[in-house]
């Protein structure tokens, strides 16, 4: 039997990613079994993979469970209003093109109230990376259905089952003009890290959707009461189909989850390099 680690202050600091986290704010507020910590961890590792000057990295979050992500990162971080992370980030990037700007927000924030800004940032191909953590619900406000909640799924505002059709975030991002579009689940941590690293390296609007468990609301109301249930479900029902048509990878309740990299192309982006005086 091995000895258990001593719960010392030193231990807290020497987590490999400890120096990039506001550990004075830990443990974080996300529920047991929520996938957000996994995405945050993968994101930090991706930043390190890119060898970015962390002083030049800015993370913008909107409102919602994912909205709290920026606050846990020891970087320039902005916690803006609901749905408005992308236009805030647009201003930040255009005013200071040297910055590597990342929007780290949730499905409700980005696709419902913020949907208009998402598609316009994609159209303009603003040079930023959007990490959209999709847990199919509004977790912070208590489990209502959102723009990505599968039809028939239950929620606190669709107890008899969601009657609406959801967005397929990958299709939406691709249609708006994003030059890098990928989807992973929190059970695919290595692919998620590799893909986030690629997204950060691309010049233009990069979009990574990360399907993540919400045990407290979405899972509990749809027969997967723990994070582990949902993670097991992901592992059993996920396939990887790189460059599949982004418009045919919708997520149905209980159905297959198609993951992978769907778009990886180039297009003129904003700010224009010569005008934006950032390196090639």
């Amino acid at each position: 039997m091995s000895e258990l680690a001593v719960n010392s202050e030193k231990t807290r600091e020497n987590h490999p990613l400890g120096e990039y986290l506001r550990t004075d704010r830990f443990p974080h507020i996300w529920c047991s079994g929520c996938g957000l910590g996994i995405v945050l961890s993968a994101f930090i590792r991706s930043l390190l993979n890119c060898g970015l000057a962390l002083d030049k990295v800015a993370v913008v979050s909107g409102i919602g469970c994912t909205g709290r992500a920026a606050g846990y990162l020891k970087l320039d971080s902005f916690h803006t209003t609901h749905g408005r992370a992308i236009p805030f980030a647009t201003g930040l990037k255009l005013a200071n093109p040297e910055l590597e700007v990342i929007v780290f927000s949730g499905d409700g924030d980005l696709a419902a109230i913020g949907g208009n800004h998402l598609i316009h940032a994609g159209r303009r191909n603003i040079d930023m990376t959007v990490l959209c953590v999709n847990n199919f619900t509004y977790g912070m406000t208590g489990g209502q259905f959102g723009p990505t909640t599968p039809s028939a799924a239950r929620s606190t505002t669709s107890r008899a089952g969601n009657v609406e059709n959801p967005f397929n975030m990958v299709g939406l991002a691709a249609a708006s003009g994003a030059i890098y579009v990928a989807r992973w689940t929190t059970a695919q941590v290595r692919q998620l890290e590799r893909s986030t690293t690629e997204a950060l390296q691309r010049k233009g609007f990069s979009f990574v959707e990360i399907i993540s468990p919400c045990p407290t609301y979405y899972g509990r109301m749809n027969r997967q009461p723990t994070g582990l249930d949902q993670m097991r479900y992901y592992r059993a029902n996920t396939v990887v189909k790189h460059f599949a048509s982004p418009h045919e990878v919708g997520v149905a309740l209980g159905g297959q989850i198609v993951t992978g990299k769907f778009i990886d192309t180039e297009r003129p982006y904003l700010p224009h390099p010569q005008e934006g005086h950032d390196g090639a």
Partner: peptide, 13 residues
């Protein structure tokens, strides 16, 4: 609305 958000972002830039 987006314009106001962008102005705030630019100021912080």
């Amino acid at each position: 609305l987006a314009s106001m958000a962008a102005v705030l972002g630019a100021s912080w830039g």
